[in-house]
Simulated assay, not measured.
Amino acid sequence: MADPSGEVWLVRHGETEWSRDGRHTSTTDLPLTDEGRRVAEGLRDRLDDPGHNASYSLVLTSPRRRARDTARLCGHPEAEVDDDLAEWDYGDLEGRTTEEIRDTYPDWTIWQGPVPGGEDAAQVSTRLDRVVARCRAVEGRVLLFGHGHSLRALAARWLELPVAEGRHLRLDTATISILGWERETPVVLRWNS
């Protein structure tokens, strides 16, 4: 049963060299840049603001170093690793920019594929549905540390939309977004701030 007063706070990891350069990064375990670490540390006050009831009933992170380091720098080293929060697996497209991918697949987007050797939208939906169910089973606030495409897809699934609808939700590095409820309806309370 969903807690209609519960919120799910999403934090996209800080900047890495590849995120800065527009390279799709899923399984490559890159560290944060100096700027990424600095900005992640700056999120701590926003996440732990006493005026926002700063306690979290559950704190989860992707297994990737960039997300785990962001969680630690934000003051949440207790974050539990959840493999389902990993970034969309780009397979053979790992490390390539959209422009480079479109040399082979014109008009390509992650939302419509193809993703040779990686995950399709249905696979991403299945694992993110487990995260959504886990969040909804918790009373109180949840804090998640993750990645651009997977958090956008998670938001779509929170809203009970297909993963591909995450394409409408731009998500920058080191930002906070909040999912919640309006009565019994799942909603976006704040995005990309």
Rank of each mutant, 00 (worst) to 15 (best):
W108M: 14
D49I: 14
V138G: 06
G36D: 00
L85R: 08
R167P: 00
G14Q: 13
R130S: 14
V39H: 01
V163A: 06
A164Q: 15
L154V: 02
T70A: 08
W191R: 01
R66P: 02
D89L: 06
G51R: 15
D21Y: 02
Y90A: 02
A86W: 14
D120A: 09
R72S: 03
D172Y: 06
S150P: 15
A122H: 11
R96L: 15
P116S: 04
G117Q: 05
V11H: 04
L144A: 07
L30P: 00
P106W: 13
L47T: 08
P186W: 04
P50H: 02
D92N: 04
A137V: 13
P186Y: 03
G180E: 00
T97Q: 05
R20E: 00
R44K: 14
S125M: 08
R152W: 12
P4K: 06
V132N: 06
T28G: 04
V138E: 12
E35W: 03
V115C: 13
A155E: 03
P50R: 09
N53A: 15
A67T: 01
A153F: 10
G42P: 07
R96E: 03
A79S: 10
T98Q: 04
D120E: 13
P77T: 06
T33E: 01
R46A: 14
R130Q: 13
L58Y: 09
V59C: 14
G146Q: 09
L85F: 07
H24R: 12
E35T: 04
H149S: 12
F145R: 09
D89P: 05
